[in-house]
């Protein structure tokens, strides 16, 4: 596999995405909104002095809130990843692309890179802002700056990229099987369900998302899933089927 080919494909896709305003807006505004909104709500509720914002409650809530960015990563990659293959189908540009001296693996990797890095940058930026604003909001209550912690490093630097990778791969698989972008997005968006489940479990204190070992178990599971998905995506991307069955 030649990385240079994948890089060329990814660079082309980056250029294309830059022209898609809905993608750009969702990448900028959704992480920004979450980064501002949650600290604002916590700040507002803290001022009213409810029991949910006691220091003991906050140290449970804050890592769970940060986990929200894992869900966001999966959500934000969906429109880009589903566009990568199904979008080429809609523009009927896949046939000339497949006629070039590139392998299926190189095309898939290029598509994966294009769908992975923009949402990653967006959620990393958003989560950094979130942690900063949260620290400013909760420092008075906690008496110290909560973020960064080792756990937050695991969430942001391990779970988030792994979850994003999973979402990208699922979306690429889905979009290489469906015939339109919308269906691809709807099916691909289902990848956030397991992460949403973990988040809700964290909020309900069923899982302690502030516990590093729990986070590492989730990360380990994601590594396994990502490796399996890589092989599935290679197996399901069949150029012949794409050319002969897509109408």
């Amino acid at each position: 596999m030649r990385l240079s080919k994948s890089r060329i494909i990814a660079a082309k896709d980056f250029k294309t995405f830059r022209k898609k305003k809905n993608i750009i807006y969702s990448l900028i505004f959704i992480p920004l909104l979450v980064a501002v909104l949650i600290p604002a709500v916590i700040g507002y509720v803290s001022q009213r002095g409810t029991s949910r914002t006691s220091p003991a409650e906050l140290v449970v809530l804050l890592p769970a809130f940060l986990f929200f960015y894992v869900i966001l990563g999966g959500y934000l990659s969906t429109p880009i990843a589903s566009y990568t293959i199904a979008g080429e189908k809609v523009e009927k540009s896949l046939e000339p692309l497949l006629a070039t001296p590139t392998t299926d693996g190189e095309i898939l990797l290029g598509k994966g890179i294009a769908a992975f890095f923009p949402p990653l940058a967006a959620v990393l930026g958003g989560s950094a802002l979130f942690m900063l604003l949260m620290d400013l909001t909760t420092q008075g209550k906690l008496g110290y700056y909560y973020f960064p912690t080792w756990n937050s490093a695991i969430v942001v630097l391990m779970l988030l990229p792994l979850a994003l990778l999973m979402s990208v791969q699922v979306n690429v698989i889905v979009s290489s099987r469906v015939t339109d972008i919308r269906t691809g997005q709807q099916l691909g968006a289902l990848t956030i369900i397991p992460f949403a489940g973990v988040y809700v479990a964290g909020e309900l204190n069923l899982i302690n998302l502030g516990d590093a070992s729990n986070l590492l178990i989730i990360a380990g599971a994601l590594v396994v899933v990502d490796v399996l998905l890589f092989f599935v995506s290679r197996a399901t991307f069949r150029r012949e089927e794409i050319l002969t069955k897509w109408k």
Partner: peptide
């Protein structure tokens, strides 16, 4: 595939890229 060029029945251009960028992309792939 390196030896051949294909003009398919559906042109399949990238509508959001300029004429120059469309050709540049394929030139790089080849």
């Amino acid at each position: 595939r390196k030896l051949i060029g294909l003009v398919p029945d559906n042109v399949g251009l990238y509508d959001d890229l300029s004429a120059y960028d469309n050709l540049d992309f394929y030139g790089k792939l080849y």
